[in-house]
Simulated scan of single mutants.
Amino acid sequence: MIIPAVIKDEDFIAQVQQYENDKKYFHLWWLGQSGYLLLWQGKRILIDPYLSDSLTQKYAGTNRPHTRMSERVVNPDLLKNISIVSSSHNHTDHLDGETLIPVIKNNPGITFIIPEANSNFVANRVQIPEAFPAGLNEGKHITVDGFTFHGIAAAHNTVDRNEKGACLYMGYIIQFGNYTIYHSGDTLWYAGLEKILSPFEINLALLPINGNDPARGVAGNLNVQEAAGLAKTAGIQHVIPCHYDMFTFNTANPADFAAEAEAVQQAYTILPLGGHWSSEVL
């Protein structure tokens, strides 16, 4: 049985529009896997959106079927007035041409933030000039439309770099107004990550919980215990877990994360597919 979205397509867009004029709080919607739509003071940001069936189609009939568990939240053709879209790395559930091509086409002036090491690959997949995306590396930042993105190295499964030392896998610290968000991308808890994150005084972290099982044949992530522990150790105020309930072979139970977070007294929210969250709870 496919997990339904609590809201989708035109109704989803209408709900986002309801909060366009909120000048006090920011708003977030989970798009599935590690994808989010962030709204702050009328500005819309897309983070790692995967809004197609491209992986299910690609791996159909193979020994690694990507059987989808959840329905699509929103047709990417409906996503308008987007200021920034980001991709944390080149895996299709974080860099999906079928999602990104219409988003970029329908949003003139959009900024596309990626790891700078991946610019050639991204240009080919998304059918854009290589100079179009804004490339980041760890320790670098870029400010666009009131949002500052800081590059954070990610270990998927290791902190891999190109010949120039630029990271292939990244997370982003996103600062705007008085708020700071951490979207880790796909990562393990590598040595010193908590020390990199702590000085940012992060209000909200978006962390994967699907774990690292070599039998799956894909790179791994934080598991439920590690995600809760990293957040607590880094002094993160609130966590929303992600990277589950998309594909049957690579998922986790968010109730297990909830139990781990409660055990270490880490504040969290489990969002349903398409679910809305507001910084009013902070």
Rank of each mutant, 00 (worst) to 15 (best):
L222M: 08
L38A: 03
D53F: 15
G109S: 14
S83V: 11
S87T: 10
F149Y: 11
N106W: 13
N63A: 12
G220K: 10
T148D: 07
Q237G: 14
D256G: 11
I142Q: 07
I13F: 02
S119Y: 09
W277M: 12
Q15E: 14
Y190S: 03
I181Q: 00
A155W: 14
H91R: 08
L188E: 02
V224Q: 15
Y19S: 01
I173C: 03
E280H: 13
D245H: 07
S278D: 04
G165H: 03
Q33P: 02
L38S: 05
E20L: 15
S54I: 12
M170A: 06
G171Y: 02
W40N: 09
G32H: 07
Y172T: 01
E138T: 14
I84S: 05
A258E: 07
A166M: 12
F121P: 01
A215N: 06
D213G: 02
L168N: 09
T67E: 12
Y25D: 14
I202C: 07
A267M: 09
F121H: 07
P49K: 15
D22V: 04
I2M: 15
Q17K: 14
E10D: 13
N203T: 05
A259D: 08
Q18V: 06
E262D: 13
E98C: 13
G109D: 10
N221K: 09
W277K: 05
E163W: 01
W30R: 00
L193I: 01
I3W: 09
D160P: 00
N90S: 15
S34E: 10
G211K: 04
L204N: 04
N107I: 08
H94D: 02
H89K: 06
Q127N: 08
H66R: 14
S70V: 09
P4F: 12
N253V: 14
S70K: 11
H183F: 06
A231S: 13
L95Y: 08
H243K: 12
A259P: 00
R161P: 00
V281F: 12
W40Y: 14
E194S: 07
S70D: 09
I152T: 04
G139V: 10
P129C: 15
I174P: 01
Y268I: 04
L28C: 01
E130G: 06
V85N: 01
